[in-house]
Write a protein that binds this DNA or RNA. Structure first.
Lengths: 226, 226
DNA sequence: GCATGTGAAGCAGTTCACAGCG
DNA sequence: CGCTGTGAACTGCTTCACATGC
């Protein structure tokens, strides 16, 4: 056992937990009772040793000679991800992307509750999106304090992102998911994650422009897993 | 110099290139002529030594004692990212997210041209989104071959993602950006990147549920950058 | 016998620190 | 004299390999 108490979970491990959670949920829906690390790792597209090491950071959840109980492991991972308690989320920027995310069934579910949608454009103020009305950004502090919202999603243009970020932080939000193409500055106590679609496309373009010296030599079938 | 020819660029470096590009573009718009690695790194929220090492993989673009010429460095990075030539992109899945991405000014610009939007739902077939008509997925192979599209974006539900991926690969697409919450299997010659919104939220939830043992002790001001 | 859990080894990316050059 | 470019040190994730235990 590495560190059951002394928390020091590698970030790459944390990032893989949602993946494990989703695949385990699919297995559970398929009435699969147990999985070995090799099977689960294959379904997740990762190395089996890495999967076992990831899980070992949190506890001893498997049975030697058998594998993992799907339902039990799923529950443990969801507990570690903090999905057992509901979290209130506010979102600023109700353009096309904001609308899409607010309506997305997969995005705002499983422990995340939208308690406020905000913008400044009169054309969207008052509109009801997925059951929540769009309010003016100036009411964000009140909504955050009343609901105790601790998470914020920024889908504004880049020019407004830092300002919105500051307002969220001042209103008690300590975890921010930023979709705007701008570098946010926030206190160290606030966790910020950045998602940049066009950057992802550019990374793909880079790899197209820089083909591997010796790649795709033995491309027999689609034997990707393992 | 490390490897001007023998390409072996670390992936983290590649992922940071679009960030540098965007910040440099902003500097250029602000009529800034030169930047030091410290200034640029600060604006990007990264370490200065890391920035210099990243650039050194591609060449010697700076001037000792002075810094980097903004316009020249920007051009070099855009060339490395392959943004000098236009790339044709097809997108499958025209739900809310697909609509939002197709309309996004920042997403489909700068070297990326949408040549096809696809779905299966009669309710969206024929609709014009951002100047392109939505066609049935069965026409994807024809469009890819006619336009030579090499990049694909998947915004379908998870249940359709692998099928769409297979069709794209069979049609000559060798770079795929997947927004569906599913693990795609593709030949090694095809580059796949995955963006998962809800996973990002879950990662934030994890860090909220696991506060650092000794965090935010000296939180004087927002002195985040250096 | 078989699959987990984990020290130890290996490897990759980051950071340091300074020589080299404008 | 300042800032880049980079070998070297360092840190940390990944992978291996096997003892452990069902």
């Amino acid at each position: 056992m590495v560190e059951r108490f002394g928390r020091r979970i590698p970030e790459p491990t944390v990032v893989r937990l949602p993946l494990y959670q989703r695949v385990l949920r699919d297995l559970a829906l398929g009435a699969v009772a147990t999985v070995s690390s090799a099977e689960l790792a294959s379904a997740c597209g990762v190395n089996a040793a890495k999967l076992r090491k990831d899980l070992s950071y949190f506890g001893t959840y498997g049975t030697r000679g058998t594998g993992y109980d799907v339902g039990y492991l799923l529950g443990q991972i969801e507990r570690e991800l903090g999905l057992d308690r509901e979290r209130c989320v506010v979102m600023a920027g109700m353009g096309h992307l904001g609308h899409a995310l607010a309506r997305s069934p997969g995005f705002m579910s499983g422990g995340f509750r939208v308690v406020g949608l905000f913008d400044v454009a009169p054309s969207v103020l008052g509109e009801i999106v997925a059951g929540t009305g769009v309010a003016h950004i100036s009411t964000l502090p009140d909504v955050c304090r009343q609901t105790g919202a601790s998470m914020g999603v920024i889908t504004t243009p880049a020019s407004a992102a830092q300002d919105v970020c500051d307002q969220m932080v001042a209103s008690g939000v300590n975890a921010i998911l930023n979709f705007a193409p701008s570098v946010l500055v926030a206190p160290p106590s606030v966790h910020v994650r950045h998602v940049d679609f066009s950057a992802e496309l550019q990374v793909l373009a880079f790899y197209q422009a820089h083909p591997e010296p010796a790649e795709a030599a033995s491309d027999l079938g689609a034997g990707l897993i393992l």
